[in-house]
Design a protein around this nucleic acid. Structure first.
Length: 353
DNA sequence: AAAACGGGGAC
DNA sequence: GTCCCAGTTTT
């Protein structure tokens, strides 16, 4: 590992001075409050998307006191469309904590910052470096990509051993001088030059030093997440309709997949409908039963092949609504949380009937 | 359709 | 520790 900065940071800062972005809304007035808000918004979200949200947010909550005094709903309202709404809730919670416990001043150490909800090591480093000049490394998605290419670090950056290497490199490259500009510069390089696809290596200040570039292996880094072949599970979901055409939904347990959402009654096989009203609802006389097109729903850890089975039977009218069971009219007049594939199935059904 | 993105929280 | 989750954009 190279000991300390000089060439890397110096070259990067030269590039930043000449080609970097310096007029972003949060770069001009670098208070901890403004830098904090911007860094949270920039998590998972690109600069061009964030700018209007940041301006609007600052217009409404110019100080941390105003933010702390706000209603959570107001904060969420200004966040609508940005996604990951837990960020807004954490932001609001942290603002209240800071105002109540620290006399409105921010913690000035990485450890102190990380105690606040929504701030991990990289975000803490960015706030400390940019708004306080504390020499602290960061490792966001941009930096991971730049460093993985610069030193040909193999493996998926989220893997703990790989992440550890990258943190060590980040630490060793972070300069003592101009750490605020350096921190913005390395993110800017990743966002504008060392991009995920089609990087502009010919414009990069490190085109001669970058190990991946030297070996013509830029596209190999950072490594992709190992995709294990996901197991495939299958389930039959029953679209049980009463004589009004309403569909029976079941509220799922609070924990586990689709927690507390409504879903269709299930069984392992299309041929064995769940027993719901004493006698089984089978494919006997007077019932209409048909298998619909299978659909696949994928989770991060498995695929679920769903065989929908539609059954209409007068006997179903005997089922009464409870906390657990709900008759769902297909006109969407009921606002309930639905498991994603269930929503899809019901939409298809509504369209075709 | 799949990958990328940072952090929180459950286990 | 490790796994899973949450929303939107990019490829």
């Amino acid at each position: 590992m190279p000991s300390t900065n000089p060439p890397f940071a110096k070259q990067l800062l030269q590039w930043f001075d000449e080609h970097g972005r310096h007029d972003l809304p949060w770069q001009t007035d670098r208070t901890s409050y403004r830098v904090w808000i911007s860094e949270i918004m920039l998590q998972q979200t690109q600069v061009t998307t964030v700018i209007p949200y940041f301006e609007r947010f600052m217009g409404r909550f110019a100080t941390i006191q105003e933010l702390a005094a706000a209603q959570t709903d107001q904060v969420l309202h200004l966040w609508t469309g940005l996604g990951y709404y837990a960020r807004a809730r954490n932001l609001h919670k942290a603002a209240k904590v800071i105002v109540e416990t620290n006399g409105s001043s921010f913690p000035d150490t990485i450890e102190g910052l990380m105690e606040l909800d929504g701030i991990g090591q990289s975000t803490a480093g960015a706030i400390a470096a940019i708004s306080m000049g504390v020499r602290a490394p960061i490792l966001d998605g941009n930096v991971k990509r730049v460093l993985a290419r610069y030193h040909c670090i193999s493996g998926w950056p989220e893997q703990s051993s790989v992440k550890k290497q990258l943190w060590e490199i980040a630490e060793s490259l972070t300069p003592h001088e101009r750490v605020d500009d350096y921190t913005q510069a390395i993110m800017d390089l990743g966002a504008t030059i060392c991009t995920r696809s089609k990087p502009s290596c010919q414009d990069c200040p490190f085109q001669l030093d970058c190990e991946a570039r030297q070996q013509d292996r830029v596209a190999e880094f950072p490594g992709k997440k190992a995709k294990k072949t996901l197991p495939v599970k299958s389930v039959a979901m029953f679209i049980l309709q009463n004589t009004l055409g309403e569909v029976l939904l079941e509220k799922r347990p609070a924990t586990g997949i689709w927690g507390s959402l409504y879903s269709l009654p299930e069984s392992a096989k299309p041929s064995s409908p769940p027993k719901l009203v004493g006698a089984s609802i089978d494919r006997g006389a007077n019932n209409v039963s048909e298998e619909l097109q299978k659909i696949r729903h994928s989770f991060s850890h498995y695929h679920l092949d769903i065989t929908p089975v539609r059954i209409r039977a007068t006997k179903l009218d005997e089922i009464a609504e409870t906390d657990r069971w709900l008759w769902y009219p297909l006109d969407h007049s009921l606002e309930v949380g639905l498991a994603a594939p269930v929503k899809k199935l019901l939409n298809n059904l509504a369209e075709n009937s």
